[in-house]
């Protein structure tokens, strides 16, 4: 059975037995582009697909499903949804659970043992051969948490993921500043990086308050740099490396570099990688392991 038919069968089963109200998965749109899909009836399960253009991290939709009235209200406890995840996306489930954003029992995780997704996927720019950068460096292709596993668990050698960071780290501070300023200069503050991110769950972003207290509303370099660095800092020890922020960026800012840099720092300091287990990052907790 192909992954697609397995996912469809699982979804049909979950929906017809009322175990979940919705299956969040992937479909192919009329233009042939793979995109997120929300399936509510067993009959619609045929729309679901699996292919190597399934790049989106669907866990970003869990908030809207399980907390329909916003983050400040209690979760909708009766709601239960199923979601299709890749190995990287599954780490986001663990972080969301660790941070009490969702209850694990309310999510039926359909994990896919993934072979990597293509560059330009979802945007009609996929050549059907080149894997995304993150996938060429991915060491765990089996989801870390799942209720149903599609495909066989695979072991992959962990690859060296430091080379693009090393290139920047070898520069002088002035060269690095120029590199980043020229990258941030293109930013149009569309906030797609933030919106696509499952970890960016603040009800009001610090950098989009209407009082200009932290950064102004303008599109100046100071503001854009502060937004990107601030966002990277807020994701330190929380980012699971799905690189959605980088994929959705309309002006190709290499945001993933910042996230990888800080993930490395947190791992070096605390021996912790986000999402491998449902425990909060040591960076945001104190000695007892519980928020004081």
């Amino acid at each position: 059975m192909s992954y697609t038919t397995e996912i469809q069968a699982t979804a049909r089963d979950l929906l017809s037995s009322d175990q979940v109200s919705c299956v969040i998965g992937y479909e192919v749109g009329p233009r042939g582009r793979t995109r997120p899909a929300f399936i509510y009836t067993a009959d619609d399960a045929d729309r679901l697909v699996w292919n190597q253009n399934c790049t989106h991290n669907l866990t970003t939709y869990l908030h809207q499903k399980l907390r329909p009235n916003g983050y400040t209200s209690a979760p909708a406890e009766t709601e239960r949804v199923a979601i299709v995840v890749k190995a990287c996306d599954s780490r986001a489930i663990n972080v969301l659970v660790a941070e009490s954003q969702i209850n694990r029992e309310q999510v039926h995780v359909i994990g896919v043992a993934c072979d990597g997704v293509f560059e330009g996927a979802g945007l009609g720019r996929s050549d059907g051969a080149t894997l995304q950068h993150r996938c060429t460096e991915c060491g765990e292709r089996t989801p870390v948490t799942y209720d149903t596993l599609i495909g066989e668990p695979q072991a992959v050698d962990t690859l060296d993921s430091e080379h693009d960071l090393a290139h920047l780290e070898a520069m002088t501070p002035a060269e690095r500043a120029e590199f980043w300023l020229s990258q941030f200069d293109r930013c149009i503050r569309c906030y797609a990086c933030r919106q696509a991110c499952p970890m960016c769950s603040c009800p009001t972003c610090l950098y989009e308050r209407d009082d200009s207290q932290w950064i102004g509303m303008g599109n100046g370099l100071n503001e854009k740099r502060t937004f990107h660095l601030g966002r990277a800092y807020h994701l330190a020890g929380r980012c699971i490396g799905c690189d959605e922020c980088e994929r959705v960026c309309p002006v190709d800012i290499p945001i993933g570099l910042l996230n990888r840099k800080l993930a490395g720092e947190v791992e070096a300091a605390f021996g912790y990688r986000a999402g491998l287990e449902p425990i909060p990052s040591p960076l945001t907790t104190i000695l007892s392991g519980k928020e004081g």
Binding site: A177, G237, L258, K261
Partner: peptide
């Protein structure tokens, strides 16, 4: 406050490496 400076001790090095990575002299 018992552990306020523990938080600082964790946060600052991470911020430090981030700003250095973005081009600030450490």
């Amino acid at each position: 406050y018992d552990n306020g400076n523990h938080r600082t001790a964790k946060r600052l090095p991470v911020l430090h490496s981030l700003m250095e990575f973005a081009g600030l002299e450490p």
